Simulated assay, not measured.
Amino acid sequence: MSGSWLPTLAAMAATAVGLVVLWPLRATGRRAPFLVMVVAVGVAGSALYYLVGTPEAATPTARTGEPASLRDGVVELQRALERDPQRADGWALLGRSQQALGNLPEANRAFTRAVQLAPDEPELLVEAAQTRAQADPAKQFDDTGLQWLRHAQRLAPGSERAGWLIGIALRQRGQDAEAAATWEALLPRLDPGAATALREQIAIAREKAGLPAAATPPAATTAATALTVTVALDPAFAARARLRDDASIFVIARVPGGPPMPVAVEKHRLADLPLRVTLDDADSPMPTQPLSALKEVEVFARLSASGQANRQEGDIDSPPVRVPLPHAEPVPLLIGGP
C-alpha cells in the first residue's frame, strides 16, 4: 500500500461524509443555521498518513500503484487492517470511508471497533455515536450511542458537537426539558448566529416539555438596555505575545459578584480586533435571565486560545468594568494592558 494515497483517501472520505452528517436537525423536523456549527466540528482524516507506521515498511516492493477510487482504497485499507488490526485510527478511517460510500452498517462496525481500541477519544466517540444513529433504520441514538456521547462530554466538557447530539438523543426519548437544558449550556460557546438558531430549537423543546417560553422584552426595552463595548489589544502586549491565528475573543457581561455564567456573550475572531460590539438580550445564553432584566453588569473581554468561553489555562482577560444599565457610552476594554 502506498503511503502517499492515504491522505487523499482520508480527504475524499471526509468530503463525502460532510454531505451526510447534516441529518440530525432533519430528525427534529426543523432546519436551522446551527447545522453549520455541527458540520464545522465535523470529520478530519488526512492526519492518518501514519496508518501503518512507516509507509514504506508496509508496502510490498512489487506494489507501486495507488488506488484508482475511494472504493479501491477501502479494499487496500481493509487489507492493511488485517495485517495490523489494533490501529484505532485505521478503523476510524475505514468507518469514514464506508460512510462516504453509503455503507452505513459497515461504517458502524468499523467505528465500533475503533471505540473498543480507543475508548477515551472524545472526537472518535462523537463520530462513532453519530454514525451508529445514521446506521439505525429510524435514525435513533440507542443507549450505546448516548453512552458514548456522554462519555465524550465528560472527557471534553467543551465539545459543542457532543452537547448538540446529546440534546437530539434526549429529544428522541421525549426528554425535552433535559434537551433544552443541555442546549442552553452550549449557548455561551457559540457565535451569535449559531446561538440564535439554537435558541429556536430550545424554544421548541421547552414548549414540548410544557415549560414557560422565554420572555421576549419589547424592542424599546431591549434597545434601552443594550450595551456597546469596544475591545482592543494593548500594543506592547501584542508585539511580544505569540498569539494563535485561530484564537477567539469573547465579550462577556455577567452579574457583579454573582456566578460566572454570562448574562450576555458574543464570540469573535482575534483577527477582528479592534472590535465594537453591542450586547443585548439576543446575546443572553439563558432565556430566564436576559440582559434587560438587570440594573448593573460586569463586562470584560477574554482572549481564548481554546475557543471556549469558560476560562481555561492560558486565557487572558481584560480588567472587568462594572456598568450600570442602561448605559449610553461605549465601554472600552483593553486586553493585555498593564
Rank of each mutant, 00 (worst) to 15 (best):
T144D: 13
A118W: 05
V20G: 09
L186C: 03
S306T: 15
A209F: 02
Q78N: 07
L275N: 03
K267S: 04
E184D: 11
R322Q: 12
V21T: 09
R113H: 09
Q78G: 06
T216P: 03
E123I: 12
A152I: 03
A27V: 11
A223T: 08
R254S: 12
A214V: 08
T225A: 14
T144F: 05
G65T: 14
P274D: 07
P60Y: 05
P60S: 04
Q116Y: 10
G65N: 12
A253L: 12
I202V: 15
V41C: 09
A169N: 07
L186F: 03
A239I: 04
P119N: 11
E329D: 14
R269I: 06
L77R: 07
Q140G: 07
R240I: 04
G257Y: 08
A62Y: 06
V74F: 01
Q289A: 15
A214N: 10
A13E: 02
F250Q: 00
P218K: 02
P33A: 12
D136Q: 05
E296L: 02
Q130Y: 00
D315C: 00
T216K: 15
V231C: 00
R96S: 05
A110W: 00
A47H: 05
V297Y: 03
R322S: 08
V41M: 13
A224W: 05
I204F: 03
V17A: 07
D272F: 10
Q289E: 15
R171N: 10
G145S: 13
L233C: 04
L6P: 06
A92I: 03
A241C: 04
N108K: 11
L333E: 05
R244F: 11
D315Q: 01
P157F: 09
A232W: 00
E127A: 15
E200V: 13
L333K: 03
E200R: 11
I252M: 09
L70S: 07
P235C: 12
P338F: 12
P217M: 12
S4R: 14
V20M: 06
T278C: 06
G53Q: 05
S159Y: 08
Q99I: 00
G145M: 03
S4L: 14
P290M: 11
E298G: 00
A11M: 07
R31F: 06
G145F: 09
I335L: 01
E123G: 14
Q312H: 08
A236R: 11
R26N: 14
T225I: 07
A282D: 13
G65V: 10
Y50V: 05
D280I: 08
E313F: 08
A32N: 12
D142G: 01
T54E: 14
I252N: 08
L70G: 05
Y49S: 07
Q308R: 09
D72E: 15
A238F: 02
Q175K: 15
A58S: 14
E313I: 05
L101M: 11
S248I: 03
Q78Y: 04
V255A: 12
A10G: 13
V231Y: 00
A152C: 05
A68W: 13
R171P: 05
A152T: 04
M261S: 14
L190W: 01
A16M: 03
